[in-house]
């Protein structure tokens, strides 16, 4: 589902490579963690998989699509298969929680009659039904995190990418988010989580460790 072959990546204007000769492979339904110190290249790797960046060298193949060859017109169709939880959530400030989650299904062209129950069901799963009409700026960090998670999962993506998904949560909330992630994994979603938090690891998941842009452990 996710294949990287000898991938190197350098940000424009930077002399240092953010990722160096990285090769990894994730099967459908696999759940993996990406760890490493700040600046190790975790977010850069997620951005490559998400199609936000293109590799300087090597190949990134996601669900059969070579990211390097995707045009601006075809990139949205790749992204519809990927749910992404951003570190800064990227919620729309003027829109309700419901609208923030529904936007994914609107983009997919789903009807209003399909969207409403689907979004409400997703909000129920993340425990935010009562906040459906609230604006994100009125929510706590943990609640915003859960809205971002609901948005990433509502379209039933083939791949879920999470950048520090429990960074703003207490232990109980982090546990709830992880339960949601595991539920998605059971449904067959391939999941890659970039995190600093060692308590999230239960020992059974696959773990990638990045240091200075290199994959040092798999």
């Amino acid at each position: 589902m996710i294949d990287l072959f000898h991938v190197s990546f350098k940000y424009p204007g930077s002399r240092e490579e953010a990722l160096r000769d990285l090769t990894l492979h994730l099967e459908k339904g696999e759940l993996a963690f990406l760890t490493g110190p700040s600046g190790a290249g975790k977010s850069s790797l997620l951005r490559l998989i998400f199609g936000a960046e293109k590799p300087s060298r090597g190949q990134v193949v996601i669900a059969g699509h070579n990211v390097s060859r995707l045009t601006n017109e075809s990139l949205p169709y790749l992204r519809r298969n990927i749910g992404m939880v951003f570190q800064d959530f990227k919620l729309l400030p003027g829109r309700t929680v419901f609208d923030n989650v529904a936007i994914v299904l609107e983009v997919l062209g789903k009807s209003r009659s399909y969207i409403r129950p689907k979004v409400l069901n997703m909000l129920k799963e993340v425990g935010l039904t009562h906040k459906a009409e609230s604006l994100p700026e009125t929510l706590s960090g943990g609640e915003q995190q859960r809205v971002a998670m609901a948005r990433a999962l509502v379209g039933d993506p083939q791949i879920l990418l999470c950048d520090e998904p429990t960074g703003n949560l207490d232990k109980r909330q982090a546990g709830e988010i992880m339960a949601l992630i595991k539920k998605a994994s059971i449904r067959g979603t391939t999941i890659l989580i970039a995190t600093h938090d060692p308590t999230l690891l239960s020992g059974n998941e696959r773990l990638f460790r990045l240091e200075e842009g290199r994959l040092v452990a798999d």
């Binding site: 998400f50 949205p76 790749l78 992204r79 951003f86 990227k90 729309l92 983009v107 379209g155």
Partner: peptide
């Protein structure tokens, strides 16, 4: 711009 960014990130086409 933020709304456009989010739409783009969740798979909206330029036409959308």
């Amino acid at each position: 711009r933020r709304e456009i960014e989010v739409e783009w990130l969740v798979g909206a086409t330029p036409a959308f």
